[in-house]
Amino acid sequence: MPVKRTGFFIGLLVAVLFALLPFAGESYYIQLLTVIFYWIGLAACWNLMCGYTGYIDFGSAAYTGIGAYVAGIIMVRSGLPLLTTIPLAGLGAGVIALAVGWPTLRLRGAYFAIATFALAEALMQVAEEWTGLTEGGIGITIPQRLEEFDYYWLYLFLAALVVAITWWVEHHKHGYALKAIHEDEHAAAQVGINTHTIKLKTYVTSAFFIGMLGALEGSRLGYFKPDDVFDVHITIKMVIMSLLGGMGTVLGPVIGATFLQLIEDYLGAQFLNFYLVIIGAIIVCVIIFLPRGIVGSTIERLRLKFRRQP
């Protein structure tokens, strides 16, 4: 499949070019790009699970929170180096995802949406109340920090990795199963697809990467409280970024995250509540008018155009 490979190599080239950018200077752009890569990573994780299987996670902030706290607590308690704690944070998030996904992914999508939504809220409360472990509302100070450029590279690497995984899924065996599950789970089971296992694998993978990103972000912040890392707005942004770009597409979250983060950077955070009203309105409009997102809708339109030709 030469066309597909070309796409992959172009993507790789873009990633390498971005990786070289810090040597060219301009720290404002580096900072902005660092944040953008972080969100591309998160949105791509959300999209990998929710965009492809059609099971909506309304509590992904649970995994950024778990990641940040697992890494933070290990660093504070044992003094392990930051980079060693990152995969452990991913594992922590993966284990929770396994526990939540196992019962709920056999049921209707509504139960999964409900359980994840409640999970994030419940974990935040646990982090608030279990002061012996988390310092509760006082917050936790992370003793280790990387260089500014290291965050840039790590986020770029993780974002590129998740996007590459999505690309791989799209073009390989696994992707057909996910598409089949998305369309009709009963029919998928009837052609031999173990739908439960595949959904669970995808979900745990997605949570694993969210946990690692959350852990890195926790150390970048240097200090955080439960409502910083379990913030429902983290989930909201992941949803809206995937949705804007187009759920179930490789590039959707990349475009959606870049777009939204640029707008946010431009508007600034001072209009936070009003900003969320607008975000809500955008979600409603996208669902009603552009249900496939920007990328999805464009692809659809092109495909129709293409098909009309004899």
Binding site: C50, I56, A110, V239, F274, L276, V277, I282, I283, P291
Partner: peptide, 20 residues
């Protein structure tokens, strides 16, 4: 439409109403 559309839609409404 697939049920997820309605979840996301009401999620958008939640953002609008609570923040307004």
């Amino acid at each position: 439409a697939p049920p997820i559309m309605s979840y996301i839609l009401t999620f958008g409404m939640h953002l609008m109403i609570s923040n307004l």
